Each structure stands twice: as structure tokens, then as C-alpha cells.
Amino acid sequence: MSPNALALVELLIRERRALFRFIARYLDPASTEDTLQNLYLKASSVPGDPPILEPRGYLYRMAYHHALNRSQAEARERRALAEFAADLGELAADGEATALDQAQLREITQTILALPPQVRECFVLNRYLGLTEREIAARLGLSKSVVGKYVLRAALLVQQQQQGGR
């Protein structure tokens, strides 16, 4: 671990409660905890050159940007889910969906909403916004294989829900 990374990780550990409160201004508690964990991973991989002259300011700037990115991603996810729900509503309004199909669509929507936040976000970004696994991985700071596993897990749950509803 580089000297910069070591200094940031030690500072993060010492100021964890204050950082939690700082990030909580922008996010809900679960997202705040996830963001803190991601911040630890990011801080531990900071290169040693050039030296960071103000580690506390650097750490809080990182925390702010992580919280901002997470908040924006959650807003995009909410918009995508709202569009998805609107599309479902249009189907029902057009009379194309039977009562059984409507109930099944509601169950699938509930299945998607019940997914863990990061799994749901990966699934929605992939299936409804059309992003590739590589784009999602870069956006969320995850590995491509983790994104693939999350999307697959969500797709399997949705498929099980569809098969269970028939």
C-alpha cells in the first residue's frame, strides 16, 4: 500500500463516524454504508505519487464525489423504474395485457424492487438503459465479472417469478 493510501485509510478509520454523518447528508443509511466501504477500497488503491499534502481534505472530497455519484445513480435508477412502470401502465391502458398478465407484471416489478440496491441498479442499467457490463462496472466502480453475476442473479429471479406466475 502506498504512503498516500496508508494515510487515507488510517484517516478514514479514525474519522469513520464523521464521514458517515457527512455522507448521510446525501444518501440513505444503507447507501451511506456502501459508499463508506467503496471509499475504503478506493482510498487503499491511491497511488503514492504525487504525495497528498492535505489527506483530510482529499478524503472528504473523495467521499463527496462518491456520495454524489451514488445519489445520481439512484436517481437514474428511480427514473428508469418509473419509466418501466409507466410502460407497464401503457400496456394495461391499451388493453393488451390481461388481468393475469397485469398481476404477473406487478409481481415482476416487485421482484425487481426487492433486489439488493446494487444488484437492482446493475440489472436496470443493463436491461432497461442498455448499458454494457463494462460500462456499468466503470460507472459503479465494480469489476465486470461482479456486474455480470448481479445481472444474471436478477434475471434468474425475474425468470423464476415469471415461471411461478404461470
Rank of each mutant, 00 (worst) to 15 (best):
S45Q: 13
V46W: 11
V46P: 00
P47D: 07
P47T: 13
P47E: 05
G48Q: 07
G48Y: 12
D49P: 01
D49W: 13
P50Y: 10
P51L: 06
L53H: 12
L53Q: 11
L53E: 13
E54T: 11
P55H: 14
P55S: 07
R56D: 00
G57D: 05
G57F: 06
L59D: 02
Y60G: 02
M62N: 02
A63Q: 04
A63D: 05
H65S: 01
H66D: 00
H66V: 04
R70L: 00
S71H: 08
S71D: 01
S71G: 03
Q72C: 02
Q72P: 00
A73S: 09
A75D: 03
A75E: 07
A75N: 06
A75Y: 13
R76G: 00
R76S: 01
R78I: 05
R78V: 07
R78T: 12
A80L: 07
L81K: 08
L81M: 09
A82D: 03
A82Q: 09
A85H: 12
A86H: 10
L88R: 14
G89L: 11
G89R: 14
E90M: 10
E90H: 14
A93E: 14
G95V: 15
G95N: 12
G95W: 13
E96V: 14
A97I: 10
T98G: 09
A99Q: 13
D101W: 15
D101K: 15
Q104E: 01
I108L: 03
T109Y: 15
Q110W: 14
Q110C: 00
Q110H: 15
T111E: 04
T111Y: 04
T111H: 09
L113T: 09
A114T: 11
A114I: 10
L115H: 09
P116M: 10
P116Y: 15
P116D: 08
P117H: 12
P117Q: 10
Q118R: 09
V124P: 03
V124Y: 12
L125Y: 13
N126C: 02
L131N: 11
L131G: 02
T132L: 01
T132W: 12
E133G: 04
R134H: 08
A137T: 09
A138H: 12
L140N: 08
L140C: 03
G141W: 04
G141H: 06
L142H: 15
S143V: 12
K149C: 00
